[in-house]
């Protein structure tokens, strides 16, 4: 149902990036999206420094036990409705770290523990290319 918040959300989504145990690869590709070649800021997509300002939560990496409660806390602080974008194979399905002893689970499982109705977007790839990330975000906005 379109209301005022979703209307503005579609215009210029602000992003908060959470690294939850990835290998840095997705993280530097996110930064790459902000630099002159891809420059997502021209679409109004902006990286913000506080989860309280964010519309989209970009999560990269499998969620380790140490970071699990922190990720849930960050999710609680984001104003709803918000989209959780799982970046990369690890965030979508834990990828190569599936059998590791200190990994709590993929991002969707961890966030559904506190909010079963959360909205997810999956961007697979190791690492996903910046073009793929932008496409994932466009799809996320269509979902709202």
């Amino acid at each position: 149902m379109p209301n005022l918040s979703t209307k503005w959300l579609k215009k210029s989504p602000w992003i908060y990036h959470v690294g939850t145990g990835g290998c840095n690869n997705c993280d530097i590709e996110i930064l790459d999206c902000l630099t002159p070649r891809f420059d997502v800021e021209r679409f109004g997509i902006k990286l913000v420094v506080s989860p309280r300002h964010a519309d989209v939560l970009l999560v990269s990496g499998p969620v380790s036990y140490h970071i699990k409660s922190r990720l849930q806390e960050v999710y609680r602080q984001v104003p709803k409705p918000c989209v959780v974008a799982c970046l990369g194979a690890c965030a979508c399905s834990m990828g190569i770290f599936k059998d590791a002893y200190s990994v709590a689970g993929p991002v969707d499982k961890v966030i559904k523990e506190i909010d079963p109705n959360a909205i997810f977007v999956y961007v697979p790839g190791c690492p996903p290319k910046p073009e793929t990330m932008i496409m994932g975000l466009v799809k996320a906005l269509q979902k709202i």
Binding site: G19, G21, G61, S64, H66, A100
Partner: peptide, 14 residues
């Protein structure tokens, strides 16, 4: 530190 410890060394043994 230790927030993103994943246990790669043990995983490598498998």
């Amino acid at each position: 530190l230790g927030y993103i410890h994943k246990g790669i060394e043990l995983l490598a043994q498998q």
